[in-house]
Amino acid sequence: MSEPHHRQRRRQLPRGRLLLLAVFLAAAVFAGYHCLFRAPEQKQPDPEPLPQEEVPALSPEEEAAAEALRSHMERKPDFYTILLSGVDDHNGGSDTNILVAVDAANDAIYGASIPRDTKAIINGKAHKINYAYNSGGVGLLADTVSEQLGIPVDYTVQVDLRGFEALVNAIGGVTFNVPVNMDYDDPYQDLHIHFSKGTQKLNGADALKVVRFRHNNDGTGYGSEDIGRMQTQQAFLKAVAKQVLTVSNLGKVDDFVKIFQSYVETDLTVGNLAWLGKEAIAMGADAIAFSTLPNAWKSPYIYLDQEATLALINEHLNPYVEDRVPEDLNIPS
């Protein structure tokens, strides 16, 4: 099979990014992988079971329907969906979940935050979507997200919050614009968050507090609690990406690998990660964008806006060649 056309148009890399490619190569060698760069496999629909006995040939109408279904499930090249979950808020849960679409064919990475209070049907009953992780781990969470949005979750990545803190420290802290004044104390968790609005340098422990903040003790803050927190998380992840993809971090790859091995669980292989890292470096941090699935709050759940969510899926998250249609989604009302 010939190389996809986009490989021919890929822009030449600046010297700094070429050096970073060499670093990712070294990281793969450090991990002991023989196949250094291996594109991930895309999740395909389960094949229909083979018939136990001969069946009559399909009618022309049935053949047309089967071809339409095959076409509807045809996947784009080099397009992957990855569910990124921040785990353990000392309750064994996953309150931060972002569905990331990596479109290597078009140089784009897009993350859509999934509000933790999103209504979902789990094991036949209505729950908030983060219950899926508590009930059945990341597998059930991925299946729940896929069922609602009508698209597959190819891979999952679970990041322990201690790993987040370690990464920020490894890159020397992150300069970040804290969006609101933060004054919160929870003696039960020994959690104390006190930051003034504005740009400041955050170490790992401070960064973790900023991205966990929901509201002040007097109820002020974002005004939208989890939605505001997700926007801050998205902005902070973008700031981290910009800082990680710099020449100044060339000598820290061993540290990054050790952090990853200690605090991250994923079904991506090291070769897959090396390939994805190479692609991300080639794109640059400006290719990364975030949003939150469109929604409205009506106690006790967040309800996804079906029409707006479908539009967002087709614009940024859909791994299929054909647009998804309302019948593909299964969003509870």
Rank of each mutant, 00 (worst) to 15 (best):
Q52I: 11
A57T: 07
S59P: 04
S59G: 07
S59D: 00
E62D: 09
E62A: 14
E62G: 00
E63V: 12
A64V: 10
A65R: 14
R70M: 08
S71Y: 01
S71H: 08
E74T: 15
K76V: 06
I82Y: 02
S85Q: 12
G86I: 04
V87D: 02
V87K: 01
D89F: 13
D89K: 06
H90N: 11
G92A: 07
G93Q: 13
L99A: 02
D103W: 08
A104H: 03
N106W: 09
Y110S: 14
G111T: 03
G111S: 06
S113G: 15
S113E: 08
D117K: 02
K119N: 09
I121Q: 07
I122F: 08
N123Q: 14
N123P: 00
G124L: 09
A126H: 14
H127N: 12
K128I: 10
K128L: 09
N130S: 11
Y131E: 12
A132V: 05
A132H: 00
Y133L: 00
G139F: 04
G139N: 14
D143V: 02
T144E: 04
V145Q: 04
E147R: 15
Q148K: 11
L149Q: 04
L149H: 07
G150F: 12
Y155H: 15
Y155Q: 01
V157A: 11
V159C: 01
D160R: 02
D160F: 03
R162M: 11
G163C: 10
E165F: 01
A166Y: 10
A166I: 07
A166R: 10
A166E: 14
V168R: 03
G172M: 12
V174D: 03
N177D: 15
V178A: 07
V180L: 08
V180M: 09
N181S: 10
N181G: 05
M182E: 03
D186C: 13
P187H: 10
